Simulated assay, not measured.
Amino acid sequence: MAETGNFAKAARQLGVTRSVISHRIQQLEQFIQAPLFHRSSRHVRLSEVGETYYQDCVEMLAGFERLTENMRNLRAKPQGRLRIQVTSAFAIDYLGYLLAEFMQLYPGIELEVVVQDRIVDLIQEGFDVALQFFPALVDTLVERQLFRVRRIFCASPGYLRNHAAPCHPGDLLRHTIGLYDGYPSRYQFVFRRGDERLEINLPGQVRSSSVHLLRDFALGGAGIVCLPSLVAGKELLAGRLVPVLGDYVVGTFAFRAVYPTTQRGSLKVRKLIEFLAERLAQMPHWEGDDSFAPLGEALSAGGVEPAWRPA
């Protein structure tokens, strides 16, 4: 009406009847308790109040359009800080390379990566996403599994030259054992071989929150350790570590991205998880049933010639 100066023209533009336009204006005038138009038999023009009201509405609509456009740009180009918590088992040797590629794809995102293995309240501590072994334990968190993690008992060749290799899981009780204390099942292990199933609680003379410390402990020839294959893989392929109890299967865990439900609509969180899921599906299958060959091929391509293959 303010632009057309005519009830009939305004009705045609909006696709409604003239009476609807007239009724809506009357309702608005009653609401603000002031006339918006001066009416005569020939003309309809804005009153002083109507002019002020019209200009404020125009500015408000323009601001809303700018806000909408900004939101569309944000949806198209994720940006802002992305705070990630990640377990050291995946952070070391792997995540940095992936994040380098991710940043090239999305330069508007700023990354803050905290490497730690403890379980934290993601919402309270302000994390957007966690990359971890542990499942989402509360309803305020959701998760997406990225890959399976296989655990391997292994030791250095030097240790096994001086100590008889275990043939049965119970034999581990006679060895010096190093265990990671961050697994969901802690020190309880289930060994399977065919129809045989054995559940055993290992005391672990060395317990650590760092799987890399345990790897180095084993490389020093001090005992047998249980490591995820993504940490032990290079050493196994090079022959610096040797698997024991290879005919037994130890329970696996899912490595997952966990994030608060409030982040479901976050474009930067979604882009990160989709990126990791795609890249990890293409990465070597550390968790193969009986071989490290896929990982070996990738390492060989990078100049590392594996000296050992599992039987």
Rank of each mutant, 00 (worst) to 15 (best):
G302K: 14
V86Y: 02
L160N: 05
D93Y: 08
R18L: 01
S266L: 05
Y53A: 08
H43D: 11
Q282D: 12
K234R: 15
G288H: 11
Y159V: 02
N70I: 14
N162M: 11
L141F: 09
L299M: 13
H285F: 11
L131H: 01
S41H: 14
Q26E: 11
A254R: 04
R150N: 09
I84Q: 01
T52N: 14
G80Y: 07
C154M: 06
G246Y: 04
I109D: 02
L61H: 10
N73S: 13
L237C: 08
G303R: 07
V113C: 05
I92K: 11
R193L: 10
R81G: 08
P135Q: 10
F133A: 05
V244N: 00
Q27Y: 04
V258A: 02
D216F: 07
I152H: 01
W308R: 11
F189E: 05
L272Y: 02
S88Y: 04
R39W: 03
V249A: 09
S210G: 09
V258L: 05
P157D: 09
A130Y: 01
A136C: 12
V44Y: 00
A91K: 01
V115F: 05
A8K: 11
E48W: 04
F64P: 01
F64A: 15
A76R: 15
R150W: 04
G302Y: 10
L61D: 05
G126V: 09
K234A: 12
D195G: 11
G265T: 08
E125F: 08
G15E: 07
V44T: 09
L46V: 04
A62G: 10
S229K: 06
F255R: 02
V149H: 01
G5H: 13
